[in-house]
């Protein structure tokens, strides 16, 4: 689990050349963002941010679980898909909503309820899966839980397919399609809402990991499980909480996906999961800031490819970038979890 430099524990090892790095870390990304904005224009910039925000929310779950038990949880993409179905079941089938709701006084509580329900349900599903499928294998060779994760992925997909059918199901687009006009550009309010929601959740996660007792337990478990246990950290509870948070974020991403695209399918989790996993590896798997960054980078790569006229090559360019980054920086852009593990 990562800690932001600002929140790192007192006495943490300070690497050489630390005086220059923070500056570069700020200047280079800032230049890239400004460059992307100038190149794409405001509308495509927001498209990339929106897409990236969804990938980032999913990528966080991959990276947190990997950070703490070194498991690539291949069922995580399906948690995202299920989150979307929980939300569409609640909004569309239980409340019977179909169109957009223009009154903010009505819309706000619905959105809060949709996020709340989806995150709670998916959090519970995440903890249950960890308890039933992964915990018994904690001492097993690493390949065993990996294969189990693929099995869990199939089970989740089939559950949803049997319940909702193997086709696209409509998700009510309750967010009104209002545009915010900036100069000549029209930015959908929904996109801004999605970006804000995602960023707020990411900041909350960083604060949780960096500033709370449970967060510290997570970091210490990630760094050295045995030592943490000897120091009195409840390992089982800490791992369960990691799954809870990761799955809840996937649930939130599912809600956002439903609002934005209005359609869900039982195998949506595969592609999204693969790209989010790529985002996590790109940023440095095990590193939460890296996962968020990786998500946005993939959003920009995909939209950038379309802007340049390579829409057909979108997935190839994403995975090609991953290969190139891994060749030159095998531990991802921001490196794996700070220091502790190679």
């Amino acid at each position: 689990m990562t800690a932001l430099p600002a929140t790192s524990e007192a006495g943490a090892r300070v690497p050489m050349g630390a005086s220059l790095r923070p500056l570069l870390r700020l200047v280079i990304p800032a230049l890239l963002v400004v460059g992307a904005y100038a190149f794409m224009g405001p509308e495509q910039f927001v498209n990339a941010m929106t897409r990236g925000a969804i990938y980032a929310l999913i990528a966080l779950g991959y990276t947190m679980v990997y950070g703490i038990i070194e498991l690539i949880n291949f069922a995580h993409g399906d948690m995202f898909m299920m989150g979307a179905f929980v939300s569409l079941t609640f909004l569309g089938q239980i409340l019977g909503l179909t169109g957009s709701i223009t009154e903010i006084a009505k819309l706000a509580p619905l959105l809060v309820a949709a996020f709340f329900i989806s995150m709670i349900v998916m959090g519970a599903v995440g903890v249950t899966i960890e308890r039933l499928a992964y915990k018994p294998l904690r001492a097993a060779p690493r390949l065993a839980p990996l294969i189990t994760a693929i099995g869990v992925s199939f089970i989740l997909q089939n559950i949803v397919m049997l319940k909702y059918g193997p086709y696209q199901t409509n998700s009510p687009k309750i967010f009104p399609s209002v545009d915010i006009v900036i100069g000549t550009a029209k930015i959908p309010a929904l996109s801004l809402f999605i970006i804000v929601v995602a960023v707020v959740m990411m900041i909350a996660l960083q604060l949780f990991i960096g500033r709370t007792r449970l967060g510290r337990a997570m970091r210490s478990t990630a760094a050295d499980r045995d030592a943490a246990q000897l120091m009195g950290v409840n390992i089982n509870r800490t791992i369960a909480i990691t799954f809870l948070i990761g799955a809840a974020l996937a649930g939130a991403a599912g809600v956002v996906n439903g609002l934005q695209y209005g359609v869900s399918r039982f195998d949506d989790g595969f592609q999204a999961g693969l790209k989010a996993f790529t985002a996590a590896v790109l940023g440095g798997i095990g590193n939460t800031v890296g996962a968020a960054l990786g998500g946005f980078i993939i959003g920009f790569i995909e939209v950038g490819a379309t802007v340049m006229g390579f829409s057909r090559w979108g997935p190839a360019i994403v995975f090609g970038t991953l290969v190139i980054v891994l060749v030159f920086r095998p531990s991802g852009l921001l490196g794996q979890q700070l220091g502790e593990r190679a």
Binding site: A48, F270, Q271, A272, E302, T306, R312
Partner: peptide
Amino acid sequence: REGAPKGTTDYTAILTK
């Protein structure tokens, strides 16, 4: 003239273009 393979969920970039 654009293309997007099966499994694509986000067409906003193409449509904005």
